[in-house]
Design a protein around this nucleic acid. Sequence first.
DNA 1: GCGATGCTACGGCCGGCGCCGTAACGTTCG
DNA 2: CGAACGTTACGGCGCCGGCCGTAGCATCGC
Lengths: 236, 236
Amino acid sequence: MTSNARFAELATLSGDPARASMLFALMDGRALTAAELARVAGITPQTASGHLSRMTAGGLLSVEKQGRHRYHRLATPSVAHMLETIMQVAAELDPDRQRPIVGPRDPALRKARACYDHFAGRLGVALADALVERGHVELTSDAGLLTESGIAFLGEIGIDTGPMLQRRTLRSGRVLCRPCLDWSERRPHLAGAVGAAICTQSMRNGWTRRRDDTRAVLVTPAGERIFRETFGARIE
Amino acid sequence: MTSNARFAELATLSGDPARASMLFALMDGRALTAAELARVAGITPQTASGHLSRMTAGGLLSVEKQGRHRYHRLATPSVAHMLETIMQVAAELDPDRQRPIVGPRDPALRKARACYDHFAGRLGVALADALVERGHVELTSDAGLLTESGIAFLGEIGIDTGPMLQRRTLRSGRVLCRPCLDWSERRPHLAGAVGAAICTQSMRNGWTRRRDDTRAVLVTPAGERIFRETFGARIE
DNA sequence: GCGATGCTACGGCCGGCGCCGTAACGTTCG
DNA sequence: CGAACGTTACGGCGCCGGCCGTAGCATCGC
């Protein structure tokens, strides 16, 4: 029954408030240093270092040495997915937190931000809506599918879906297309390999840019146009 | 930042070994008493009662009074899904536990068991494979979709898909069709509303029966025939 | 080299909580 | 109504682990 122990270990590691803060901060997919993570959690670097060691040993995080810095990131997409589902349960049983006041205060964060490796906020939801409306993807509350027309559309904007389709086996592996509940909009945006590919492509083409110190994502004028004209998305 | 606190609370509640054992036992969707759960966790009923109170207050469980018994069950499908994803991460980072020795020892459990509200084990995987093969559902590693032919097929075996399709909005709600990684077979079986409906129908029609004291599910002779001839599934 | 910086290792304090035993309460049944 | 059973409430013990301070190790810049 060692599987039980693993399970409990993962949950315990995620369950400490300080560690949860750090995991939250890492949900945008970036790699951060111990000092940065200590700051967001409100603890000293020494303490944070201990937490990070435990989470790395437990399989939640992976480390990357670079000079005198050690960058920490979420170990796998599965870990990000796990954190998402816990957040979803947390969101569901907060009946008091109604629509208007939910989520981050920062308007920039509400407009567009990164969620592990894909877009969230109004941008993420609007893109998902547009792709669904045009029949490029099909989404239910917890399942998604990329259609033939979607494959063609992604090809048009320079995304090769070949490698993704390769892995359409039923084994474990990268998610092809999947909804992810947006915690500010309370509606799903696009995650999985398709969501990640769109995010990557947007960054590469200069449609969006990361802002250094936050999860917020900046939509450039070129991006505004592309998202509106090519995707058909309305980000009000 | 109360969302952080909720998150941490949920994870902490799931993180204790004793509580994790109880949650595991409840993963088959049944409602169990404090005494039964105490037995599977290896603690006294008093201690178990305390754990159950906390998990109920925390939103993981719901209670149902019946005479002098109090039955505890998982509060929502989201909770079951959350536990699944944690299990999935746990399974992924166990490199040593290879195919043959993984999962439960009990052969009956490996053959067919309940996973919250749907089938798992070789039965669950075989049914999922058969439905995919005949084009009734489409499954990737983390997304699923019920096809038109699938709707027709379910109708033939007496399952009305109307209510499910009703809720195909993009809001939160019940899952229509979704894969769930099988921890003994390491391949997905069918979860979501479709998986649950098939399980319910099988129980009602006497194709399968629950065994009292375990998660194992008994496939009746009638069930063997139906699954083989109507579903086209091969449970070797 | 030397100091500054980022990070980790170790020791000590202390609060939280998991566990049990005892006890009280409610339900069921004879 | 009283005994038996399931469950919850309370008190006390013990340990795990989060926190910080100090100290030690690597890396970078001068």
